[in-house]
């Protein structure tokens, strides 16, 4: 992960064999493939715009890699059928790519890459082109596919929360260099450079303890204070161990601010907060607040800031939905 212009896509394309590096080597499973052409590397690329072949049907797109490998037609039918059932795109097989929605295109691109059973699958911002509601389901799809097929995925993103949620290991890139590699928690709690901190420092990250459940939600206590928040039920794939201790992340853009207590909101978490600081972040502002000893960070637009007339020391209401809380588990 890293900011745009960091060289993430270029690195991905170099691994795929589209570019030959002037120095260094590319090794896949211990084999030096630096001078191999892309077709000899056993990597599958899912580019940012999915690059479905527009002149071929969905079926022909998915079967393309099998046909180049000389797989027999009955086996092609069988394998395409299996993968498209798994990705729930069986009903699209006869369609042309231009008639598909963004989410459908993404599934077809994933099916096309997965059906050849590559050693490595290269995902270039696979959720960037999707609208926010689809992003979440796309992430859980990726997670379950990964759990089932066990491929190695190199997933490029500029979204720190996506990286934390999906990755076993994160390489942080900036300016064409990898600045830090490590497990998500290591990157979050121990950023080794100011560039990494800039990315990780603005998300709301807490350690928390599960203390109970209430009306379909679970109740968490954020440490070190005892601020209680309501979170959506824990997804099944997370192994929490027996301690009940977890890490939680809340995106600053998911926290809404108002001067008066919100009357009509579906948000389960509403708190009174004291504004500590306002930081200029170009088109938006980062509002740093204190809620019972817990630091809460939120983005608001310039216009919203002018409307609300917030200044340090003011009291505001900060609220967010139960589903905004991402539970990461303890690793």
């Amino acid at each position: 992960m890293g900011p745009s212009g960091a060289g993430k896509t270029l690195l991905l394309h170099t691994i795929a064999g589209i570019y030959v590096p002037s120095r260094g080597t590319v090794r896949i499973g211990g084999v030096d493939v630096t001078v191999f052409p892309p077709e000899k590397r056993s990597v599958a690329l899912v580019p940012q715009d999915y690059a479905l072949f527009p002149h071929l049907t969905v079926f022909e797109n998915i079967s393309y890699g099998l046909r180049t490998r000389g797989v027999g037609s009955s086996e092609i039918e069988e394998r395409v059928k299996r993968i498209s059932e798994e990705l729930e795109i069986s009903h699209l097989l006869h369609r042309m790519p231009r008639t598909l929605s963004g989410g459908e295109q993404q599934r077809v691109a994933l099916a096309r890459a997965l059906v050849v059973e590559p050693k490595v699958i290269l995902l270039d911002e696979p959720t960037a082109a999707l609208d926010p509601a689809l992003k979440t389901s796309a992430r859980s799809l990726l997670r379950s596919l990964h759990a089932k097929h066990g491929f190695t995925a190199i997933h490029v993103t500029h979204d720190i929360v996506e990286a934390i949620e999906l990755a076993d290991r994160i390489a942080f890139m900036s300016g064409g260099r990898i600045l830090q590699i490590g497990e998500p928690m290591e990157i979050l709690y121990n950023p080794k450079s100011s560039e990494v901190l800039k990315f990780t420092g603005e998300i709301n990250l807490y350690s928390a303890e599960i203390v109970g459940s209430k009306s379909g939600c679970i109740v968490l206590e954020l440490k070190p204070s005892n601020l209680r928040v309501m979170a959506a039920p824990i997804p099944q794939h997370l192994d929490l161990g027996e301690t009940g201790r977890v890490h939680v992340v809340i995106r600053p853009e998911d926290i809404v601010l108002s001067k008066k207590p919100p009357i009509q909101t579906s948000a389960r978490n509403v708190y009174e907060a004291v504004v500590e600081n306002l930081l200029d972040r170009g088109p938006i502002y980062l509002v740093v607040m204190d809620v019972m000893g817990i630091r809460l960070k939120s983005y608001i637009t310039r216009g919203a800031l002018e409307d609300l007339r917030i200044k340090p020391g003011d009291k505001v209401y900060a609220y967010f939905k139960a589903s905004s809380i991402r539970i990461l588990g303890v690793k």
């Binding site: 795929a16 052409p37 690329l45 690059a51 527009p54 890699g65 096309r112």
Partner: peptide, 11 residues
């Protein structure tokens, strides 16, 4: 990119 994807798919 369409050509690159085809190449990674073994063509």
């Amino acid at each position: 990119m369409l050509e690159y994807v085809a190449r990674t798919l073994g063509a």
